Computed example of a mutant assay.
Amino acid sequence: MTERADQLILNYVSAAADAAHGVLRADQRLDFSRRLRARIEQERQGSQSARDVAKVLARFGDPQALVAREARRLAEGQPEERAPEATARFPQIRDDPNLPPGAARSIKLAQDRLSRRPGRGMPLAGLRRAVMSSANPMTTEGRDAGTIVKEHPRETLAMALLLVAALMVPFNLPSVAIFTVPVIIWAIGTVIVLLSDSWTWRDRLLGTSAPILGYSVGGVLIGGLRVGATAGFERFFTEFYSVSGIMFMIGAGLGVVLLAYRLFNVS
């Protein structure tokens, strides 16, 4: 539990530091992150519970809002805060119509830069941040593949089972009762995925049904294209069984990619 609680704090502070990139100078960003971490630890009161830490972080609110508040303070030329005074409060930001023109322009510039943060809204941005994690942890908001595995061991096991089911198809292992080994492994992985609340219900259905859709729909389409319209059912079924296993493997791979992508972003 301690490791999980510490990771939540690291993720939050890293998100704030990432949001401050391009808005605050490097020294300002470092000082802001240090004060934020100190205040979180103070509010945490030594608790090792991930649930308690999550509640503390919820009270702090959106990290981008904290960065905008810090930009506001610097733009207004307020004296630099120091711990413990510096971390006394992180109140919610409210628009002030009476701001000096110079301060208002600086705040607008900070907000524009936040809205144009690299990777925000780009396709596959979550996977891009995961790949870049070893080079710059700030780009991933403190998260990488190792973090996901530690935080979601059951979900990781389920995705591994779906991949194993696909890899077992070419071996033609003897059936257990009326079910083949890959189908049994797929069924176990599917049950674990469906019981998990780390994905939306739609993602769970898509991720687990992809192998079966590949086997059935893909097998019918590819098998039909290979035999043409004049061949009989016997030739069709021969072609269907020759390609359906491959389509099952492709479907399983696509389903796991979807689940992994969603797990990283939802987490």
Rank of each mutant, 00 (worst) to 15 (best):
H152D: 11
R154P: 05
R69P: 03
G46V: 07
A166F: 03
Q64M: 12
F264I: 14
I212R: 00
L162Q: 08
I192S: 03
A166N: 07
A135D: 13
S267G: 13
A110L: 06
I40D: 01
A50T: 09
I188T: 03
I212W: 10
A58F: 07
S14Q: 00
F236P: 10
G102V: 13
A229C: 07
Q48K: 10
E70I: 05
L36C: 02
G232C: 08
Q28K: 03
R204N: 12
F240M: 01
Y261C: 13
P101S: 04
L30G: 09
D6G: 05
E151K: 07
I9Y: 03
V53W: 02
I188H: 03
A260N: 04
L99T: 10
L221K: 02
I178N: 11
R204Y: 00
P79K: 01
F240S: 04
G22V: 07
M247R: 03
R129V: 04
R120V: 13
E81Y: 00
V256G: 02
M247F: 05
A229R: 14
F179G: 06
V217S: 05
D96I: 08
R94P: 00
G119L: 08
G228Y: 00
G228W: 04
R29K: 03
L259H: 09
L66W: 00
A50V: 07
A75K: 04
L24I: 01
G207W: 07
S134L: 11
E80Y: 06
P153E: 13
T147L: 00
A210I: 10
V149C: 03
G224T: 14
